[in-house]
């Protein structure tokens, strides 16, 4: 399995650390209702198909990546730097 880091190029899966779904970018406001925090921390669409999730190029540039990929075929469609996403979460 390989991922193409926008900074480092195609790299082996061993260089990356996986966090989980894109939801982790949508941190609720401090005063948000507990249901919002429950959704943020726990509940997931968990699609069998296209998903967007977060990977860290730990043995590389130290950048967090938002990866658009397919959970059934493992096809990778897009890799973006979290730090330069438009309208970052905060």
């Amino acid at each position: 399995m390989r991922l193409t880091c926008p900074l480092c190029g195609p790299r082996d899966r061993r260089e990356f650390h996986y966090l989980g779904a894109e939801e982790y970018l949508r941190r609720p406001a401090a005063e948000a209702a507990s249901a919002a925090w429950d959704d943020y921390l726990h509940n997931r669409d968990n699609p069998a198909g296209e998903t967007r999730d977060l990977w860290y190029h730990e043995a590389g540039c130290g950048q967090w990546l938002l990866v658009t990929r397919d959970t059934v075929s493992h096809d990778i469609r897009k890799v973006e730097l979290v730090a330069t996403l438009k309208g970052g979460a905060k």
Binding site: D12, Y18, G20, N46, A48, V72
Partner: peptide
């Protein structure tokens, strides 16, 4: 394998 998947198969690492 540590990444979300429904593939019922894994990778080498």
């Amino acid at each position: 394998d540590f990444y979300a998947s429904y593939a019922a198969r894994g990778n080498l690492p």
